[in-house]
Amino acid sequence: MALALLLVACGHSPGRPAVDRLVADGPAGFVGISVVASGGREAALPRDEWARVAPLLAARRLDHPEPLSSYGLDQPQARLVYRPRAGGRLDVDLGAPSFDGRLLYARPARAAHVYLLAADSLRPLLALAGVVLPPPA
C-alpha cells in the first residue's frame, strides 16, 4: 500500500495556481497605466479604474496555443501599458474576443503562453482608446 501511495504521489503533478496573474502588482505598484489602440491612439486610464487591470487576472491560460494569428495576437487590437514605480514598462497585448465574446485573448510581451481575460471588465477601458469590443453572443 505504501508503494502504491508513493507511485501515486510521484505521478501527481502540482496543480497550477487557481488564478493566473499576468500582472501581479496592485494599483499602488504603478505610476501610470494606459491603453494604446492599434492605430496609435493612447488613453491613460483614470486612477480609479486601475483596480480593474492591476493585478491583471486571467480566467484561463492556454498551455498549447495555436499560432498567434488564431487569437488576433499577431496584430493586437490594443495594448495595456503599465509603468511600474520601480521604472521600466510592462506591456500586455490584447487580441481578439473568444468564440462567445465573453473573454479576450491576451499575451504579456515575450511570454510563451496565451491567456484569456474577462471581456466585460476590459470593455469600458478599451472604449477610452476607441476600441469597441462587441457584446458577448
Partner: peptide, 17 residues
C-alpha cells in the same frame, strides 16, 4: 476546445460551450 481553437468554433458557427 473553443478557447484554444476559436477558428474551429467560428467555422462551425458555435457560440456556446
Amino acid at each position: 476546445d473553443p478557447d484554444t481553437h476559436p477558428g474551429e468554433a467560428r467555422r462551425f458557427g458555435v457560440g456556446r460551450y
